[in-house]
Nucleic acid binder design. Structure first.
Lengths: 353, 353
DNA sequence: CAAATTTTGGCAACCGGTTGACAAGCGAGC
DNA sequence: GCTCGCTTGTCAACCGGTTGCCAAAATTTG
């Protein structure tokens, strides 16, 4: 017969933290309960279920908690509930300044609402990304995927487990925050057309990038509208060096104005063209995307279609936090505005020769 | 008399996860134990204490775990042990590209060793920083402080709780990773001296910045050695706009070459000087610090003393991870090399008039 | 004033691992 | 064959909260 070894112990107040040894470990609800003269479960309720206990007891407990400098142990809470007060953010590439804004926006929002941000990167690899996402899923309450590279299906599968918000891409059935490229692109093309350009090149990003395809579509549409020719060029990498490599192709294309998938490509392209004594913007106008940090360091400073990435980060985090509180936003897709930032790298085409 | 309600239950195998409902929750050691036909605690030992169980049982358990796609629940593990497989990183300012390298290096290292990185920023405020650090301390196994703004004492207090590594500052009794500014500064001053400069200005960063003071000392020392004059100017903020604001003061100082606390100041300074038709480097040479992302976007590209921040992030993370495994590194301070990156913003002083 | 109803607090069983203590199993040595 | 010592697995008590259920207390109602 199995007998409890020590009935008194079972009936006692429960574990008591050993405050003796240098205050190492912090106070627990059991300590608070003892000081306040109530049951631990009452403490738990007072601290997490507002209105569940009487105002008097509430005050008593809060006082005791303050006195002991009590803070909940996030792990102890996470174990039975699954709630971790942590949000995950996976970016395609930490080196890429496009994501700095996202990280910053998300971090600020999350911290302001007493959550913590976990960061991971996928090195632009769908497989790494999926692994990172799965790993994170066990630890976070929700996940932000910035410019994810994995399939729609994988994203939806993740979203079935816990709330997921996608930035910079539209996935059916998953809340998304996307800069609406079209407005900015239309402005850019209109500006180029007004400056005498007739043939526009678009330098594409990675083939997996949903946003790159989207921008190309936007460029095509806007060009049709303005009766301009649009040609598409591929890049090896969406980086400065990728931009340098594509310079030759740009010249060969006969275009007098170029939009690039992102600012890094634009900067690399501009550097290489200038090295070949091609004057920007007199002979070729260059327009980037994103308005990343440093886009205005160049000479001439880069004209670019600004995507408010920090805002995307903020919005994505808010969406997630709201969802966790049961506030469902009806709109599956949140579009944030883009706009043309007109600087020196685009302008009137000088007659050649 | 307190009687156990259900003796059989107490003697049973223990909790069993409900795999019925859509495979929601993942397998536990209890599931693995059942499949392998052993006790849960044996599973726990097999998976975390190598050599504690026989090779035969080990294989049996590993097989069962693989079959069930078992993964430990980090919270369940963290609760009794305190180990979380998570490292914290606090940077002074996420916007500041100096830290991009740190974040990147730390993230990569931590992930490679199966840890996760938690990120927070202090907005350059000692109080916010301390709050963030305290908050993190409850959740992480160790903490990296990049360019901390709080007192030495507070840092030491944190370090008494859990392993802490500091980047970009030296704190007695706490392991630190610091770029050794002197080598790079010496190179820079030598180069400037060789180019005919005699009066050098240093634009300082925030007064709380240990590294700013250190760099100023380095500049002074190197100038004495080369028999140059060194003057110090203050900046309002260590940013591009802070750099613009200090331009007037730089001109007034009569210096023909300027080192700035960081690259952002240098870039802002250069923009403002150029706007005032002061040719760089013909009339004034500019040298930054850090070689941040975008330092080579400017025209002329920025000469700068490179601090390998990604390496700092990597080293700090490694130090921390080693410490957690009981591998103590004897050296309290790890110095990483700095070097002059000579670009176009510094050079020979043209005779004025 | 008693009965019905609503609050409020306590009990105890979890969540999923870890670990000290201990006993069974096993081979070696005498 | 028996004792000793070492390896290996089991038991049960945690870690620190959360929560369903129930009863006591307080409040409303008839």
């Amino acid at each position: 017969m199995t007998e409890p070894k020590n009935p008194e112990a079972a009936a006692s107040t429960g574990p008591v933290s050993r405050k003796g040894l240098g205050g190492k470990s912090s106070a627990t609800i059991y300590d608070v309960a003892r000081v306040a003269g109530v049951n631990p479960s009452t403490v738990s309720r007072a601290l997490s279920k507002p209105g569940r206990v009487s105002a008097k007891t509430q005050k008593l407990i809060e006082h005791a908690a303050a006195e002991l400098n009590y803070h909940v142990n996030p792990f102890a809470r996470a174990l039975p509930t699954g709630r971790t007060s942590t949000l995950g953010l996976i970016v395609a590439d930490i080196t890429n300044p496009t994501f700095f804004g996202v990280i910053r926006g998300a971090e600020a929002t999350v911290t302001a609402r007493d959550y913590t941000l976990m960061l991971a990167e996928s090195s632009e690899s769908p497989a790494t990304e999926l692994t990172a996402a799965r790993r994170m899923m066990t630890t976070v309450d929700g996940l932000i995927l910035a410019s994810p590279r994995m399939d729609d299906d994988n994203i939806r599968a993740l979203a079935r487990g816990k709330p997921v918000v996608v930035i910079n891409r539209e996935v059916d059935g998953v809340p998304c925050v996307v800069p609406d490229a079209n407005t900015g692109i239309a402005e850019a093309i209109r500006s180029l057309a007004a400056n005498g350009h007739r043939r526009i090149a678009y330098v594409a990003g990675p083939p997996e990038s949903w946003m790159s395809r989207r921008r190309w579509e936007g460029v095509q549409t806007a060009c049709e509208w303005s009766r301009l020719e649009a040609v598409r060029l591929e890049s090896s990498r969406p980086t400065v060096s990728g931009g340098r490599e594509v310079a030759r192709g740009v010249l060969a294309s006969g275009a007098t104005a170029v939009l690039t998938y992102n600012d890094l490509l634009a900067i690399g392209l501009m550097q290489e063209l200038q090295a070949a004594a091609v004057v920007v913007p007199d002979r070729i106008s260059i327009v980037g995307f994103d308005d990343i940090f440093g886009a205005d360091f160049t000479t001439p400073p880069l004209t670019t279609v600004r995507s408010p990435m920090a805002e995307c980060g903020t919005e994505a985090a808010s969406l997630l936090l709201d969802a966790l509180q049961g506030i469902e936003h009806p709109a599956a897709i949140l579009r944030v505005e883009t706009e043309l930032v007109l600087r020196g790298s685009s302008g009137r085409l000088l007659p050649s020769g």
